[in-house]
Design a protein around this nucleic acid. Structure first.
Lengths: 220, 220
DNA sequence: GACGACAGTCAACACCCTGTCGACTCCCCT
DNA sequence: AGGGGAGTCGACAGGGTGTTGACTGTCGTC
């Protein structure tokens, strides 16, 4: 994907303390507690006290490590994003080898990454509405992915594999948005959702028809 | 759309009081205040006291009319949904006349309805994560719309206008999900979004290619 | 080996928002 | 005229957040 994760943030200095000392365990303990608790209840139902207790510290001490609940989630999100970027790798640069297989690989890898951290992903989606930081980070990441897909679509059009049509950017936005919402529904399990087993193939089908007007695009 | 809005709820008894008396003005005042305030700040930043003050009553009195903040939003959502159902009408029953025109009409009408109440729609999307009632209602409505689209796709396949492919239900879910998320981004204005002017045509293009494999499906 | 500096810790406080209770007023109907 | 219910709100209890200030331990340094 050549997504080049511009180092807009350190992703490890979210909590304070540029320090190095042993209290790092506590920070990790808070993070671990958060991810564990998130699997049982909603983010809003977890109090700072819960996080502190879970990490074996008092509530005021929590504030020594993080400026608030949201910062914890933000750190968790940072990690998931990093993992997703790594998983995506450079598949989009090798599209022409076998377009269908590569697009599928891309979607499947994102699916695996998000599915592996569904609690965090779900919590972020919920908090995005109320927390500007999460919203900003997610917008930034999405923009990167959209740009990568946009470039890939333009590449496919240039080599004659995909027909002209919508502006590549608009198409990329629509497809990425679809994935986000469909995954959310599948992981959350409320409302109409595609079965987890099928979701990658359903998404792939829509991507291929929207980009190529066929489900069997030609290799180079 | 023949969506037959099964009367699962009265949509007007959300606040309490089966009554008829003059205090209805207050209820309306609360609703109006909520929609007005929602245009300036996020739902979470509006306190019950704000709502009460805005309606010229005290905070405890607010509870006489609504069981809580969320119920106000729920009532507002009910109205928008009713309006959307009415706007959709029976376009999907007349698809064969001119598929492209009808699908466009459907999408454009939903766009107009949601765009006319973007504050409410945005707030609901944000609250869906934390409020089970909103989540349930939205899931129920979405299920109805998905079913309508699913039936329409099957109809188009039966008359030979659309090729076979994904299960119609999965396709309907994916497309509806895309619309929801794309509209949200367009209205919210954060993160990558399709320009409001283009959004209907972008969505339409993806719907048509996903359903028909062409942007110019044949009429009956 | 005494001492300042600083990471780490928490009891206690001030604050804000929610939801509830009980008392009060008004008005309508009998 | 008077009993009942709609409508109203002051005052309270409870729970969550964020901050302050004092305490502890452990370094490196002179």
């Amino acid at each position: 994907m050549t997504t080049a994760r511009t180092p807009t943030r350190a992703a490890s200095t979210r909590g304070r303390r540029p320090g190095r000392s042993a209290g790092d365990d506590r920070e990790l303990a808070i993070l671990a507690t958060a991810e564990r608790l998130l699997e049982r209840r909603a983010f809003g139902d977890i109090s700072i006290d819960d996080l502190a207790k879970g990490a074996g510290i008092s509530r005021p001490t929590f504030y020594f490590y993080f400026p608030g609940k949201d910062a914890v989630l933000l750190t968790l999100l940072d990690r998931v994003i990093e993992e997703a970027d790594a998983a995506a790798g450079d598949v989009l640069d090798r599209l022409a080898e076998d377009p269908r297989a590569r697009w599928r690989e891309l979607i499947a890898r994102f699916h695996a990454t998000f599915g592996g951290h569904r609690a965090v992903v779900l919590a972020c989606a919920q908090v995005r509405g109320t927390n500007a930081e999460v919203r900003r980070l997610w917008a930034e990441v999405l923009e990167r992915w959209v740009r990568a897909v946009e470039a890939a679509i333009e590449g496919e059009r240039r080599r004659g594999a995909a027909p002209d049509g919508l502006p590549a950017r608009d198409l990329a936005i629509a497809l990425n948005s679809m994935n986000e919402r469909v995954w959310y529904a599948t992981f959350a399990g409320d409302g109409p959702a595609v079965a987890e087993r099928d979701v990658v193939d359903v998404l792939l089908d829509v991507w291929l028809t929207a980009i190529y007007r066929t489900t069997t695009p030609p290799p180079a």
